[in-house]
């Protein structure tokens, strides 16, 4: 564990908690894409299939449980909570899951490190995580209505990815046999998806004006 990995995990954790707390306290999920949240729940479910079989560390197991629990809670809130579900912008959040799911599944079946069920599912989760933010970014762009918390949520997610790249660079130089092309390429693509958002986020921060994305 290095400082970049820890900082990455903490921003990831913070992003999920910010979103969960926002939904829980103000009882509104406006501006939040259910599609993206469902994809994340699927990402964690397929990635942590071996959670009770393979033990890495206490830290890893606890974090996995938190990510699984929080992602499914968020989906539950938006779909089932009596008050929260009324604030969901269903007509704006129209991105189709299948456009992302199918290519990721096909790619995972073709490009993987080992052709076993567990490994293909893990690879699928890596590919899917890389693009799962797209429905959220499309929703932000479409409604142009970004409250502070939703902006912070997306910013923290992007920061988590950037920190993971630093973690990989660090591990590459400090650990033997640390070459993971699949994770690296998917991770870099995932981080690049945030570049545009980051640009506008920093602009608004610099000029201390409300974050607004161009139409």
């Amino acid at each position: 564990m290095n400082i970049f990995r820890l900082a990455g995990d903490m921003t990831h954790l913070a992003s999920v908690l910010v979103l969960l707390l926002k939904i829980h306290t103000i009882k509104s999920c406006s501006g939040v894409s259910l599609k993206t949240q469902e994809l994340y729940a699927l990402v964690f479910a397929t990635r942590y299939l071996d959670i009770f079989v393979t033990y890495v560390s206490f830290y890893n197991t606890v974090m996995k449980l938190i990510f699984l629990g929080s992602s499914f809670s968020i989906v539950w809130y938006i779909r089932r909570h009596r008050v929260v579900r009324r604030s969901y912008d269903k007509d704006q959040d129209t991105f189709r899951h299948l456009f992302l799911l199918l290519p990721c599944l096909v790619l995972a079946l073709v490009i993987n490190e080992k052709f076993t069920f567990k490994e293909v599912m893990w690879t699928f989760s890596i590919y899917l995580e890389a693009v799962a933010i797209l429905p959220q970014l499309v929703l932000l762009q479409r409604t142009r209505n970004i409250d502070n918390l939703t902006g912070q949520y997306v910013f923290l997610l992007g920061a988590y990815r950037a920190l993971y790249i630093l973690n990989w660079i660090y591990r590459y130089f400090t650990e033997e046999h640390y070459v993971h092309w699949i994770t690296w390429i998917a991770g870099i693509i995932q981080t690049l998806l945030y570049a545009d958002f980051f640009y506008y986020y920093f602009q608004s921060w610099k000029n201390s004006v409300k974050l607004e994305l161009p139409a």
Binding site: R5, H12, D50, T54, V56, S57, N60, N167, E176
Partner: peptide
Amino acid sequence: KEEPQGHDEL
């Protein structure tokens, strides 16, 4: 040296 089994990142 063998690569460690499994994935140790989240």
